[in-house]
Write a protein that binds this DNA or RNA. Structure first.
Lengths: 119, 119
DNA sequence: TGGACATATGAACAATCACTCATATGTTAA
DNA sequence: TTAACATATGAGTGATTGTTCATATGTCCA
């Protein structure tokens, strides 16, 4: 099926060598999906603000809501997404959950992202 | 209005000092939006594949469509988004447009992203 | 145990998205 | 100029998203 497609397009405009060359080194379907998922998770202002706040300090849900100016429910929903992507972790202390960054990757991603934004 | 909110929540659960401390160093609304926008742009498998392909080689729309297995129209639409975000550039050669990465930021972002994915 | 509180979760809904299909634009060659 | 082609763009559509509101869970304290 893939072969047919190449052959079909080839007669029109494809540079076969280039296409095959790039195809050989191409990212897998799974990897591109995982990568996109991480970036999509970072692709929302609320989550960006949450992560940025957590870069400074471990905070509970209520604090996070106050810092970024969103409802606690909205924050909780977004934290769930960040947890699912392993971007944040938390520890319980009494009734409260203290959230923090799971690792240093987010900070580096933000640095790179900001470099692009402020270019 | 913000003061009221702090005061209101404070009586319940806020750690005032932490909140104020983090707030003082907080990212601006504009920056968080721009940052989110870049990440959102990277947050789609089709665009990830397009950018990954362009990391290897300059390619025309038709080649890109063949490499990632999408319609030329879909590719064109996604390239427009990448162009808007200044992630790719292009040059015309006859009827064809050759696309390439606008800078090296994307590669570094992908590296960081992959580190997180394959952790 | 029961009530208060911090947080989580589910349903619902408006907004946004990525695709397809049809059509438009811009370039080359006859 | 006209035909052919590479690409771009607009409208339409089903799917996904982020929020709110209502309710559930889990912990502490009286």
């Amino acid at each position: 099926m893939e072969r047919e497609m190449v052959d079909l397009c080839e007669v029109i405009c494809i540079h076969e060598e280039s296409v095959n060359e790039v195809r050989r080194e191409m990212i897998t379907e799974d990897t591109s999906r995982s990568l996109a998922e991480i970036f999509k998770t970072l692709g929302d202002p609320t989550r960006v603000k949450l992560l940025f706040a957590l870069m400074k300090k471990e905070l509970c849900v209520c604090d996070l809501a106050a810092v970024i100016g969103a409802s606690e429910s909205a924050v909780s929903h977004q934290l769930r997404i960040l947890r699912t992507q392993q971007l944040v972790k938390f520890r319980r202390e009494g009734k409260m959950l203290y959230y923090s960054l799971a690792d240093k990757h987010v900070e580096r991603l933000f640095e790179q992202g900001l470099e692009h934004v402020t270019e």
